[in-house]
């Protein structure tokens, strides 16, 4: 019975069917299914499948955005019922799109995955002045900072942010992403991670935070 609900959640996300996700999420609660399981075994696998379809070029950005809407529809219902700390990654992340860049679609998808995973997210939005990242990192003592840029012309600003944050807080991990970013650039600029897409960003972030905890 509960597997059927999980499948409905997953399928609802994949088929960008908000109504189906809402119905399934409410059904999950009515049956006293664990909210955490509904999210992680229902919605998240749906989004992982969406990521795969995007990679296979069956889905493109419009489809992905609609799937994200469906996923949020489910998260809004299920999240208030999640027991605190349960299985969450418990990380704190500061994220935003660097100044000069107003393209935030990629960042928003990544944010959603952090939200779903129980991260405490400080989303600075888009067109964010470089110093704001440094300030916010210090203020929140986040384990992770994610920088996004969609244009070559704004990507170069990331280098300075990485230097400044690392100077003040060498333990903080920094992940960069966006269309023009390459693995080579990430390593040259001293970033700890590079994400070509949202799925990759989330997996990398969780790995990084666990390694951080095992060291300290």
């Amino acid at each position: 019975m509960s597997q059927a609900i999980l499948d409905q959640l997953k399928e609802g996300v994949v088929n960008y069917d908000e109504e189906a996700v809402i119905t399934a999420a409410n059904e999950a609660l009515a049956q006293e299914m664990d909210a955490h399981s509904a999210i992680f075994d229902g919605l998240v696998p749906g989004m992982v499948e969406v990521g795969r379809l995007y990679e296979e070029q069956e889905y493109f950005v419009p489809e992905m955005l609609m799937c994200a809407d469906a996923m949020y529809a489910g998260l809004n219902i299920l999240k208030p019922h999640m027991k605190k700390k349960e299985g969450s990654a418990n990380g704190v992340v500061v994220m935003g799109v660097v100044q000069g860049d107003v393209h935030d679609i990629g960042k928003n998808i990544v944010r959603m995955m952090f939200d779903a995973s129980g991260f405490e997210v400080h989303d600075l939005g888009r067109d964010v002045p470089l110093d704001k990242f440094v300030e916010e990192q210090l203020k929140t003592d986040s384990n992770l900072v994610c920088l996004s840029a969609m244009m070559t012309t704004t990507m170069v600003g990331m280098k300075e942010i990485i230097e400044k944050i690392k100077e003040k807080n060498p333990k903080c991990k920094i992940m960069i992403g966006g269309a023009p970013v390459t693995e080579d650039i990430a390593s040259r600029w001293g970033a700890d991670g590079y994400a070509r897409d949202a799925n990759n960003a989330l997996k990398d972030a969780i790995n990084m935070i666990s390694s951080l905890k095992s060291i300290s």
């Binding site: 100044q99 000069g100 067109d127 002045p129 470089l130 244009m151 012309t153 704004t154 600003g157 300075e160």
Partner: peptide
């Protein structure tokens, strides 16, 4: 802004 940015 000090650094070079393209208008948005």
């Amino acid at each position: 802004v000090e650094q070079l940015l393209y208008p948005t």
